[in-house]
Design a protein around this nucleic acid. Structure first.
Lengths: 149, 149
DNA sequence: GCTTGTTAGTTACAAAAACAACTATTACAT
DNA sequence: ATGTAATAGTTGTTTTTGTAACTAACAAGC
């Protein structure tokens, strides 16, 4: 039985992954069951609901999602009439994406569910932990990935 | 431009996922480049390195990994001589897994790298943030996933 | 004009994950 | 003892993802 002072259970990337997984699971079930959406689709939906009409690459920039993922998510969302795509007049490469009424409704429903869900999550923590956690996560998620290497 | 008080960038599962992804990326590169390992393989290796000989399902219980993932990770690790599998005498269903010398060496190397890497990650945060973050994550990761639903 | 480079987005193929069904072995209840 | 359920682990099939190569349109330099 080896003994050393390294604890896997305290290794930050490990903890982050475990927490992310646990905290996503129940919510994932919601958008999957109610709307048959995948994680990327949900994200695209939320970006559009939150910031209005955007292009695929704008979403990609904000959400750190690869363009192929977005392309496929947009396709599926369009097929299911959650969003519409309209070509830009001046630059025919870009497409403006916007939620349909149905997409808007799904967004609002999920947003409300998300709010409640987050509330439940936070109830596991003290208020101070909640605040600091969020702050720390914002810092971490904004780290330049190339910073180490 | 819709305005409402819900901020995607502050939604906890979203933040957790983003941070987990960012924080895993650089380290993932290490075990991939140096040992050709996948994430699950690295986890299995670490569990064995940390807790000594274990069975596949013990690892699964601790790491919350599905048995099929473990099965395949163990296969690959065994092929590459990072671990050995020996059948239990009394219960012929179970196999005891243990690191080979080579596996032990890889584990130690990666553990040291992990330590340093974590140090760099933490340098983005204040000491207080680091402590509280870890505590909060431990709480979150231990939440029963069925608690909501 | 034309050549070269860049950007938006798609498509094709390979790698990995998820899920379900399976074998083998042990436990347990009648 | 024997039929049923449970456990350990594997295998096969389907989804998703990752990666690279591609088309189309614009931009810039000459």
């Amino acid at each position: 039985m080896p003994t050393d002072n390294f604890e896997l259970e305290e290794f930050l990337p490990y903890l982050l992954n475990q927490s992310a997984e646990v905290s996503s699971l129940a919510f994932q079930q919601v958008y999957k069951d109610r709307y048959g959406m995948l994680r990327t689709e949900w994200r695209v939906l939320f970006h559009l609901g939150l910031y209005g009409s955007m292009t695929a690459s704008e979403i990609g920039g904000r959400a750190r999602l690869h363009k192929t993922k977005i392309s496929r998510a947009v396709q599926r969302l369009a097929e299911r009439r959650f969003l519409t795509r309209t070509k830009d007049k001046t630059d025919r490469r870009v497409e403006h994406l916007a939620l349909t009424a149905q997409g808007e409704a799904a967004y609002k429903d999920l947003r409300e569910t998300a709010r409640q869900y987050e509330h439940k999550l936070l109830s596991v923590l003290t208020p101070q932990e909640g605040t600091v956690l969020r702050k720390a996560l914002i810092k971490l998620s904004q780290v330049d990935p190339g910073r180490f290497t």
